[in-house]
Design a protein around this nucleic acid. Structure first.
Lengths: 213, 213
DNA sequence: GACGTTTGGTACTGGATAGTACCATAAATA
DNA sequence: TATTTATGGTACTATCCAGTACCAAACGTC
């Protein structure tokens, strides 16, 4: 009564259960390889309800992708505005970014999503802009602040963010998408991030040696 | 009689026609969305022949991916050993790399391939190592030579190659895979490559200003 | 030009599954 | 408690498609 529309709490629970089950199954077997029968087997309930809530199979897929996007976004948003010194902050950002990007779930979501982009062009924008770009926007605004505070040479903060995240992610994403069940060692990730940050700093005329926090 | 096995020229022609048709259709509609009926409609001939030559539908897919890999590799191999000055050579490499990576076909191949990796893990290795890594190996050996010739600070040529190609490709690949029918402007690519090369040089302690060819 | 292999075309089988219809039941609401 | 709404379950339909069988025709080989 408080809201314009009353939503049965059962509906919400069903919705969540179905999306969760479908997400796992889609990632595991692909969209075409998953039947709605499998989804109900996992989520409980009956196919009837799926059609009631999502219209059809594509509706379920769309809901799953939006859910995955939200998950990535929420992790990205956890990037903390740090008041550490520049180099330490960048290393911190880099490691957080890599942790997220190399998570098996992230990789699975990306594969699933990319596979179906041609049939769902609209979802492309959603996933890329709301999901993947969240971190980049955050980093760009960080550089913008550092530039105006005089901690970083003035220039195009957006380009700096692009170069920074490119150096950080290198081709770990593509490689992980290509190799099933391969995951980089945390140790390697760390040293990669440090090397990338230092190269980034030198690339902007800063000397990492003098910035050891 | 000259070879161990005689291959009917008809077979070869059929093979090529089927792969070409399947490649286009798979890229357009995905693997699941393409029926072998559609393939024969496009390639001519009959389904019978497909089964004769490829065993089953998965066999066709595998052949298509190998074909795509070969196409990418062959373009990558066209990277010419240049005896230009360092900066000019890197810009040349960068532009060639980007031209290849942003070609609509390359993007379509990658999407197609990534979508099905989980079912064809072996193809992952093939596509990544024979296809995508060809360019990187080439660049790494280039840096190795430049290092021993004293044109480039000594260090790890492989890491240099990773950073170089990461800066060059940035996230054009992911963005193009996410956005259907979007293509970067050639003008933007050029300026991006130059900015990336200069940042790369500065990151290795070289001054691009003094290297204008 | 005769022989053997490869291909085309058609028709069939078997299995799988998206989507629908319907009724009974469980849960919320008043 | 009565009424409404969402859900479960089952059974059905309609379709689509991979894979197979078979025969006749085209082509390459010798």
């Amino acid at each position: 009564m408080s809201d314009t529309k009353k939503i049965d709490p059962r509906t919400l629970k069903r919705r969540e259960a179905i999306i969760a089950a479908a997400r796992e199954l889609f990632c595991e077997h692909g969209l075409a390889g998953t039947t709605l029968e499998m989804v109900t087997a996992e989520a409980g309930g009956s196919r009837r309800t799926i059609y009631e809530l999502f219209g059809n199979k594509d509706g379920v897929f769309e809901a799953v992708i939006r859910d995955c996007t939200g998950r990535i976004t929420s992790v990205m948003s956890d990037l903390e505005m740090s008041d550490m010194p520049l180099r330490a902050a960048l290393i911190h950002y880099g490691e957080t970014l890599m942790t997220l990007l190399t998570m098996p779930d992230t990789i699975r979501y990306m594969r699933l999503f990319l596979a179906e982009v041609p049939r769902f062009p609209k979802l492309g924008k959603v996933f890329y802009e709301s999901g993947l770009m969240t971190g980049r926007r955050y980093i760009a605004s960080y550089f913008e602040r550092q530039m105006s505070d005089g901690n970083f040479p003035k220039g195009n903060p957006w380009q700096a963010a692009v170069f920074f995240s490119s150096l950080i992610k290198a081709d770990y994403d593509i490689r992980q998408m290509s190799y099933i069940d391969w995951e980089p060692q945390e140790k390697d990730l760390r040293s990669h991030v440090i090397a990338a940050v230092d190269m980034f700093l030198r690339g902007h005329g800063l000397d990492p040696e003098k910035m050891t926090s």
